[in-house]
Simulated scan of single mutants.
Amino acid sequence: MSAPPLCEGRVVIITGAGRGLGRAHALAYAAEGARLVVNDLGVGLDGTPAADSPARQVAEEIRAAGGEAVAHGGDIATTEGAASLVRVALETYGRLDTLVNNAGFLRDRMLVNLGEDDWDAVMRVHLKGHFLPLRQAAAHWRAEARAGRVPDARVVNTSSGAGLLGSVGQGNYSAAKAGIVALTLVAAAETARYGVQVNAIAPAARTRMTERAFADTMAAPAEGFDVMDPGNVSPLVVWLGSAASAGVTGRVFETEGGRITVMEGWRPGPSVDKGARWTPAEAGETARGLLARADTPGTVYGAR
């Protein structure tokens, strides 16, 4: 007798689900029995409006395969857009179990050429676009817990290797993705009492944001395992969004192809305590001694 689908009966919101990773996540959740709210604003790679409705297309694809899905085209980086996202889930399905924050776009520039508008736009979509849906979902789950209906809720946020190591030409994107990691840690600590688990992934896959910048790396092979297929990332995202991931929260996973890595963040390394104030020369000499004993940090993407 086969096991029941991993997410049978769960209601899942996925932002940025019209293409790439988000679409792959939506299809994978639907295959495991989830009911979907497919969000996508339907904009181009740089955030400008596009003519089609990718969220509607993905929802129709899920329904055609026998699943349940509804499209949402609102701007989740606004309070009303994020509120309507959660409202659609509750009005359509009567509950909300999992939020997958995935929406994003790029405006890459070297720091000296990075305009304030490009900085703000990327921060808005990636970081604010994580915060506002998370806040709306958490408020719902808190209300449920206070009413005696403690949920078994999950949030999966989307960071990046750029947020963990940095990436040349992507100062805005790297800073936003690093912020998402910190937001994940705080949210996991704050919402645990309401029955919520919050984790993040740092995926590497072929999407509109990577297939141009890393064309050689992202190209699909003529045959064999397609390491950069975005569908490779989705199984972990589905598991993290299911009840099966009980007890896993406040963690970051890097995932690429067939590899899954638990990322270990900032933690104390070599240390010296003088018990009194250092002189600048003493502080410098001590710092150099500590660095000699410390692990070498990872290389920033694109650094020479």
Rank of each mutant, 00 (worst) to 15 (best):
residue 3 A to W: 12
residue 6 L to E: 08
residue 6 L to S: 09
residue 7 C to E: 05
residue 8 E to Q: 15
residue 13 I to R: 04
residue 13 I to M: 13
residue 13 I to T: 06
residue 16 G to H: 03
residue 17 A to G: 06
residue 17 A to Q: 04
residue 19 R to L: 08
residue 22 G to T: 09
residue 23 R to F: 10
residue 28 A to P: 02
residue 32 E to M: 08
residue 32 E to F: 07
residue 34 A to F: 10
residue 34 A to M: 09
residue 35 R to D: 00
residue 35 R to Q: 12
residue 36 L to F: 09
residue 37 V to P: 03
residue 38 V to S: 04
residue 43 V to I: 15
residue 43 V to Q: 09
residue 56 R to K: 08
residue 56 R to Y: 00
residue 58 V to A: 06
residue 60 E to R: 14
residue 61 E to S: 14
residue 64 A to M: 05
residue 70 V to I: 14
residue 70 V to Q: 05
residue 72 H to K: 05
residue 73 G to E: 12
residue 75 D to K: 05
residue 77 A to W: 04
residue 80 E to A: 15
residue 81 G to S: 01
residue 83 A to K: 10
residue 90 L to R: 14
residue 90 L to E: 12
residue 91 E to L: 13
residue 92 T to L: 00
residue 94 G to V: 06
residue 95 R to C: 00
residue 96 L to N: 02
residue 97 D to I: 03
residue 99 L to V: 04
residue 100 V to S: 07
residue 113 N to I: 01
residue 119 W to S: 03
residue 121 A to M: 05
residue 122 V to L: 04
residue 128 K to Q: 07
residue 129 G to K: 06
residue 136 Q to C: 13
residue 137 A to Q: 03
residue 138 A to V: 11
residue 141 W to C: 06
residue 141 W to S: 09
residue 143 A to Y: 00
residue 144 E to W: 13
residue 147 A to G: 15
residue 149 R to G: 00
residue 150 V to Y: 01
residue 156 V to L: 05
residue 157 N to K: 02
residue 161 G to Y: 00
residue 163 G to E: 04
residue 164 L to V: 13
residue 167 S to E: 14
residue 167 S to I: 03
residue 167 S to N: 15
residue 170 Q to S: 09
residue 174 S to V: 10
residue 175 A to I: 06
residue 181 V to S: 06
residue 182 A to V: 14
residue 187 A to F: 04
residue 194 Y to P: 05
residue 196 V to N: 08
residue 197 Q to N: 05
residue 201 I to K: 03
residue 202 A to G: 06
residue 203 P to D: 01
residue 208 R to N: 08
residue 209 M to P: 07
residue 211 E to F: 04
residue 212 R to H: 12
residue 218 M to Y: 12
residue 224 G to L: 11
residue 226 D to C: 09
residue 235 P to T: 09
residue 237 V to I: 14
residue 240 L to R: 03
residue 242 S to L: 08
residue 248 V to T: 14
residue 249 T to L: 04
residue 256 E to V: 15
residue 267 R to G: 08
residue 267 R to E: 10
residue 268 P to G: 05
residue 269 G to F: 05
residue 270 P to E: 03
residue 272 V to P: 00
residue 273 D to K: 13
residue 275 G to Q: 03
residue 285 E to M: 09
residue 288 R to K: 13
residue 288 R to S: 11
residue 293 R to G: 06
residue 297 P to G: 08
